[in-house]
Simulated assay, not measured.
Amino acid sequence: MLLRWLLFVAQTLVLVAKALVGSLLPPKRRDLRADHVLITGGGRGIGRALAREFARRGARKIILWGRTEKCLKEAAEEIQAMGTECHYFICDVGNREEVYRQAKAVREKVGDITILVNNAAVVHGKSLMDSDDDALLKSQHINTLGQFWTTKAFLPRMLELQNGHIVCLNSILALSAIPGAIDYCTSKASSFAFMESLTLGLLDCPGVNATTVLPFHTSTEMFQGMRIRFPNLFPPLKPETVAQRTVEAVRQNQAFLLLPWTMHILVILKSILPQAALEEIHKFSGSYTCMNTFKGRS
């Protein structure tokens, strides 16, 4: 028993040392030239920026899913103008039957998906008591359950091919919730647990990996009107920045990515400070009231 414990400690230290060395030396990056990338919520915002970034990095085909044909068509034309083959399909990821139906259509028209980017999300932006029940359900269906359906639709073939990557565009609100967005925070926390479990479940699956991205507030129309007390100290991220860092994380096979790096401090503080102190930080930083001016879209 003692020998097993010593071996476990030694293996852990070796992996920590390996990670430290890997952070200093450039790792081997995934070549995207043979990849078919499917992005949910790909018509605008971060999804559209991701489509452009994957195209720039040489992805063979880009497939966009979304609920608004106008946005999808414009995004697809933009990607095609960059010289990359691009297709779009109207699909509500919160609808299980629709996901499975469109996944089959993608396979028949485009081929196997090797990178799935779960980016689609909505936010109701109200307190629990002010929220409409249907709007609350919509957030859970799209932000959380949608990932179940898309992953179940495409992961089996990735496992067969021993080639695939599941990506989740999550949010730092999955780890540190705020008032006024209870639907979004809850769904993102569930989504994070889903990806954490999935990532561990893929440890013995060669060639198939997962990446979870947890960005700070990003300047898209979805969170339009949200106000942080110190915008110069904590400026919102640009969609292009999130897209660039996400694609790089996929190429490096990075399991979890917090943006910006200062979000690591938030996670550490939350794990060591008492609740009363955390509440004061929320009030001082303005996150306690940042959704009061929310005007975003769902």
Rank of each mutant, 00 (worst) to 15 (best):
G94T: 14
S219C: 02
S285W: 01
V99C: 11
C71F: 15
K126Y: 11
K295N: 10
Y288H: 15
N170V: 02
I39S: 09
V37D: 07
H282G: 07
E108L: 08
R251D: 02
S131N: 07
R101L: 01
A121R: 04
E240V: 04
S171V: 03
K61G: 04
L32S: 12
W5Q: 13
T40Q: 07
E69W: 02
P156S: 05
I281Q: 11
V37R: 02
F234D: 06
I46L: 10
L257N: 11
V208F: 04
N95T: 06
A189W: 05
N119R: 08
A51E: 02
R297A: 01
R107C: 08
T144I: 05
E69M: 03
I46S: 11
P27N: 00
M263G: 02
G45P: 06
A81L: 11
F294D: 07
I166A: 14
R297I: 09
L32I: 12
G43F: 03
V99L: 06
N209I: 00
S23Q: 10
A10F: 07
Q80D: 10
L13N: 09
E98W: 00
K238L: 06
R245I: 01
R52D: 06
K104E: 09
K18H: 13
V14C: 10
I39Y: 08
F234E: 09
V37C: 03
L169A: 04
L203V: 12
G42F: 04
L50K: 12
A19R: 13
Q252A: 09
L128N: 10
R60G: 03
G296S: 10
T220Q: 05
K152V: 03
A105D: 10
R56L: 02
L259E: 06
Q244R: 15
P206Y: 03
A81Y: 08
R33G: 03
S23V: 08
T212V: 12
A276P: 00
C205I: 00
F192D: 08
V117T: 09
L161K: 15
G22H: 08
F148S: 04
E78Q: 14
G180N: 06
T289K: 15
V37Y: 01
A177S: 15
S131I: 05
G58Q: 10
S298Y: 10
R157L: 03
I228S: 01
L136N: 11
G41W: 11
A277K: 12
D112V: 04
V110W: 09
D35T: 02
G41Q: 12
L269Q: 12
A276D: 00
V9M: 13
D183S: 03
A249Y: 00
Y184D: 09
V37P: 05
G66N: 08
G66K: 05
D133L: 14
G47C: 01
T144C: 14
M1R: 14
L233K: 09
H264Y: 13
S271Q: 12
P274T: 08
L169C: 03
T40V: 05
S187R: 11
L155I: 13
